[in-house]
Design a protein around this nucleic acid. Structure first.
Lengths: 161, 161
DNA sequence: ATATAATAGTTGACATAGCAACTATTATAT
DNA sequence: ATATAATAGTTGCTATGTCAACTATTATAT
């Protein structure tokens, strides 16, 4: 049996490429974060919090689009290892506000260094305009991808033969 | 839907975008694969095997760059649900050759449809030249990413302050 | 020729992340 | 005002994927 043709020919392996990059970024970050007693599932939250200290947990969930259960667990780990602490939101006591500790601020330079090391390696050979291009294209893919699955949540699943 | 936040440096949130796309592609594919009793961890292997029927398991590992332990488990599932079978490689009895069953060939059109539905949604609004661009840029990132972590395996870890 | 190393595959232990179900609190609807 | 719905967060269960350790087979080195 012959393989069928498919649309969007050039990007047929989009998922394979995305998956490779995703998995290898985690392998690399895990290897570097070891000395900080951190793991790849946690640094994302710290990088985010450096710009949003004191944000509500649910806002983090909505920005990073990571499942709230996973966020709970990642933040638990960060709290346990002393990088963050949480306070109930007095204006809405269902919510929690997430704050960085001094310990988290202290490792910020190192964390940023590890992450930009990764970017330098992953983006080796890219000039400014290529970076710009890549970023904007990926951004559009991400927005599309999120729209697909968030559409579903509201019951209006997209049918697209 | 909350708009994605923009960083100062355009590539700063590369990992965040990659992670979003990766995770949402799995959510979408899982929702579609349900009717085939398949999951997002398995269709990748089928899509690959449609072009490489009878390939050695280890070649699959090396092409898809998925850990060999994970590959063992994914192929076990596919075997158990009747989509593939494995035969020892007579030329090297450490290895196994992986073959698609008739059942796998029968679902090929549907599987390709689901996957191209995903591509159509994720790549909505992209014209031919943008697709080409995206694909080539991502390809370069993937090659870089793989080089980073595979360098490590051979003991020559890259130090890049 | 035999000891040693390398390779293919499996298993166990663990981290990340998804969904569903639950609790507690706040918003809304009549 | 009270019943109902929605929201924020947690916990249980499960799937994917990584590493390390192991078995069995093949390659190599002396």
């Amino acid at each position: 049996m012959k393989p069928l043709s498919h649309p969007k020919n050039n990007s047929f392996y989009l998922n394979r490429l995305i998956s490779m990059i995703y998995r290898h970024s985690r392998i690399y970050m895990d290897s570097r974060l070891e000395e900080l007693n951190l793991q790849s599932g946690q640094y994302t939250y710290l990088l985010y919090l450096y710009h949003h200290d004191g944000q509500k947990q649910d806002d983090i969930v909505k920005t990073l689009r990571i499942d709230k259960a996973g966020t709970t667990r990642a933040l638990n780990k960060l709290e346990k290892s002393g990088y963050i602490f949480r306070k109930p939101d007095e204006k809405d006591r269902r919510g929690k506000l997430v704050y960085l500790t001094e310990k988290a601020w202290q490792i910020q330079p190192l964390l940023l260094k590890f992450y930009s090391n990764w970017l330098n390696l992953a983006l080796e050979g890219f000039d400014e305009s290529e970076l710009e291009h890549l970023y904007h294209l990926l951004n559009r893919v991400a927005i599309n991808a999120i729209a697909v699955t968030e559409g579903k949540e509201k019951g209006n699943e997209r049918k697209t033969n």
